[in-house]
């Protein structure tokens, strides 16, 4: 599934036109210049998963899934992407909604951000998501954008992929042959890359109900409200004396994918304290620079966020 929440045109993609200065002649095609009217494509609006799989199997790489469209349509308008076919899954039944089944909360991929934060199971059990959603772009985007789109796009600076990582979520990938389940930690493969195969659809995200006593922490540093964060942290764990149980620290905006800071989490788990965890963070993160900050700035801000978020969690805030 593609799509997502915001724009993907910062320096990760902006330099499409930049060519190294080689002093030689170059032949440029006009298509190398960016525009704002989408290229031509075909469109299908299947009404069942079977129809989705038909289309995906028939068109392979040429087909793109249209979920909330809040990133995909922008990339199409800018001609950064030119799929042959859009498969609009907006009217496939059963893909939206949040429900609890035993110790698992299943979030349909087409659940829109605005509905996600308000869903009773999320309110009751997944405070991390409830806290994260208001940071995603702006209300009009949250009215359309979906969790599945965001997760499948795998923007490393997005909130929800990191939340999935912190919550130990499982991605449910559906295809003609049935479903396979992939842990969030294995799902994200790099910049806009996941383990999704062209014939597969991200159908749902399954999140374990956190154990009793679990607390969530979330914060991000964005230049402007709703912007992608310079760096952000989604965290969840159970306080245990001076330490933590099952503490997960998922940073976003700090690498080519959301990253679990395992070294820092281990220090905290053993009651090592925030300063030691901040020091350990250097082993977890090796952020590339971008327009928002160079590697040193990102590393520094990640340490600051770690202190703030874990500090607040420890105080029960």
């Amino acid at each position: 599934m593609t799509g997502g929440d915001r724009q993907v045109f910062n320096n990760r993609t902006i330099n499409k036109n930049a060519a190294p200065l080689n002093g030689d002649r170059a032949r440029i095609q006009g298509e190398d210049t960016r525009k704002v009217k989408a290229p031509d494509f075909a469109y299908e609006r299947p009404e069942s998963l079977d129809q989705v799989f038909d289309l995906l199997e028939r068109h392979g790489d040429e087909a793109r899934i249209l979920a909330g469209g809040q990133s995909l349509l922008a990339t199409l308008n800018m001609r950064l992407s030119s799929p042959g076919l859009l498969v609009d899954i907006g009217r496939v039944p059963g893909l939206a909604g949040v429900a609890r089944a035993g110790q698992t909360i299943r979030i349909g991929a087409m659940t829109r951000h605005c509905d996600l934060a308000a869903a009773p199971p999320v309110q009751a059990h997944l405070p991390l998501l409830a806290r994260a959603v208001p940071h995603i772009a702006h209300p009009a985007i949250r009215n359309r954008g979906t969790i599945g789109g965001s997760v499948a796009l795998a923007d490393p600076a997005a909130e929800l992929p990191a939340c999935c990582l912190a919550m130990g979520a499982t991605m449910v990938l559906a295809s003609r042959g049935g479903e396979r389940r992939v842990a969030a930690a294995d799902f994200f493969q790099g910049l806009f890359r996941t383990v999704l195969e062209p014939h597969e659809l991200l159908a749902a995200i399954e999140v374990p109900v956190p154990p009793a006593g679990s607390v969530a922490g979330f914060d991000e540093l964005a230049r402007r409200h709703g912007d992608y964060a310079i760096v952000g942290l989604a965290a969840q764990g159970v306080p245990a004396g001076a330490g933590w149980q099952g503490l997960a620290l998922a940073f976003f905006g700090a690498d080519d994918r959301p990253v679990l800071a395992t070294a820092a989490a281990a220090v905290l788990a053993e009651g090592g304290g925030i300063a030691a965890a901040q020091a350990a963070l250097d082993r977890d993160l090796d952020p590339p620079g971008d327009l928002n900050g160079d590697p040193a700035t990102k590393r520094h801000l990640a340490r600051v966020l770690l202190g703030r978020v874990v500090g607040a969690m420890a105080e029960g805030r």
Binding site: D24, R27, I28, G30, R79
Partner: peptide, 27 residues
């Protein structure tokens, strides 16, 4: 180079078909 067409989208489609032979110069 300019492309004039019946719609902006078609003009952009045609711009994508232009092939410019450019020699990059030191800047």
């Amino acid at each position: 180079c300019a492309v004039v067409a019946a719609s902006r989208a078609e003009a952009e489609d045609a711009v994508a078909l232009l092939a410019a032979d450019l020699e990059e110069l030191p800047a």
